[in-house]
């Protein structure tokens, strides 16, 4: 069980193209400041891609959780 309480989930498990990061970017643009998003991804590359992308933005990485075969990445929209 996740400790985080997301406001919305972006389920990108299986996301083949253009991939979980693009799914997250799209959702962030539509979200209000303060929203906590949970990105579910089965692509291990997201563990690096997402934090790298966030570094260049005003949004915050809250946590990355290993959830048995996929990962949950929590992001706060600012």
């Amino acid at each position: 069980m996740a400790d985080m309480e997301p406001d919305e989930t972006v389920d990108s498990r299986d996301s083949a193209c253009p991939g979980p990061l693009m799914d997250l970017v799209g959702r962030i643009k539509k979200s209000d400041p303060g929203t906590v998003l949970e990105l579910l991804t089965s692509d291990e590359g997201s563990k690096k891609d997402v934090p790298d992308w966030l570094e260049n933005t005003r949004h915050d990485l809250l946590e990355i959780e290993d959830q048995n075969g996929h990962w949950a990445i929590y992001v706060k929209v600012n």
């Binding site: 193209c17 253009p18 991939g19 990061l21 693009m22 970017v25 992308w53």
Partner: peptide, 10 residues
């Protein structure tokens, strides 16, 4: 492009 490489697909 919106992410830190030229396309979503490696």
């Amino acid at each position: 492009y919106p992410i830190q490489r030229s396309h979503g697909l490696l």
